[in-house]
């Protein structure tokens, strides 16, 4: 069953008097619990398509439905509420709040978005921190953590609200190869554990090989889509 349905979307950016096309007539669907990667060179439209699926931006044309809701017509507040309830985000630069500990960073969405009770919050935060292997570092601030540890905390923060879909824009770009592979495999494990759909972008061939579905973008168009059965990939690893 499709969690994300993209119907003929285009996105143009206005640069002064010139319109620059970033995405051109893209149509695709992404199933629930999929592990999907958008790949392509810089400027191919990877970030733009993630921003559109994540209601951070609106397409110039076309329709996007996520979890049964047409997201391209939502206003600012509705978009925020939708993001908080259905989506999780992982950023290239981790984007952890520097004044909060790892625990508090993961707890943040539950406090500010979900308004969960303290006891339930603690239970949920500890569960995801345990799942990403960061329970020992829970009281450390981001500046006391390595890049890989920061991204693990970011994965935990994205998963703590039990979103149906996690979007990750170049989540491994700031990590060394070994750590990057570990983070992607962690995301894969989390997909298996929580049945969450993961969509991430990358231009790293080694990382893209970890995905089950790969959409290759070039000049704003999908030029190739490939699907690899999970079992085949496991075997290749």
């Amino acid at each position: 069953m499709a969690l994300v349905e993209i119907d003929n979307i285009s996105k143009n950016y206005q640069m002064g008097e010139v319109q620059v096309p970033a995405l051109k007539q893209i149509t695709l669907s992404i199933d629930e619990a999929a592990f999907v990667s958008f790949v392509g060179p810089s400027g191919s439209g990877k970030t733009t398509i993630l921003n559109l699926i994540g209601c951070l931006d609106k397409p110039t044309e076309g329709k996007i439905v996520v979890d049964g809701k047409q997201v391209n017509t939502l206003d600012r507040k509705q978009s925020a509420v939708f993001r908080g309830s259905v989506l999780g985000y992982i950023f290239q630069a981790f984007n952890l709040f520097p004044v909060l500990t790892a625990y508090e960073n993961v707890e943040y969405p539950l406090v500010m978005i979900k308004n969960e009770l303290a006891l339930k919050r603690k239970e949920q935060v500890l569960e995801v921190l345990e799942a990403v292997g960061m329970i020992e570092q829970k009281d450390k601030r981001p500046d006391q953590l390595s890049g890989g540890q920061k991204q693990r905390v970011a994965v935990a923060r994205a998963l703590v609200t039990r979103p149906k879909l996690v979007l990750a824009d170049e989540p491994t770009a700031n990590l060394d190869r070994k750590t990057a592979i570990n983070v992607i495999r962690l995301m894969h494990d989390m997909r298996d554990k929580f049945n969450t759909t993961f969509i991430f972008s990358t231009h790293d061939a080694g990382i893209m090989a970890e995905a089950e579905v790969i959409h290759t973008l070039e000049d704003g168009r999908i030029i190739q889509s490939k699907q690899y059965p999970s079992s085949v990939q496991e075997g290749e690893k």
Binding site: A80, V81, R83, L87, F97, M112
Partner: peptide, 16 residues
């Protein structure tokens, strides 16, 4: 600014 963007992206409403 980036931090505000992060807050908003992860679902913090403008009011909060």
């Amino acid at each position: 600014v980036r931090e505000i963007g992060t807050m908003s992206a992860i679902g913090t409403t403008p009011g909060k």
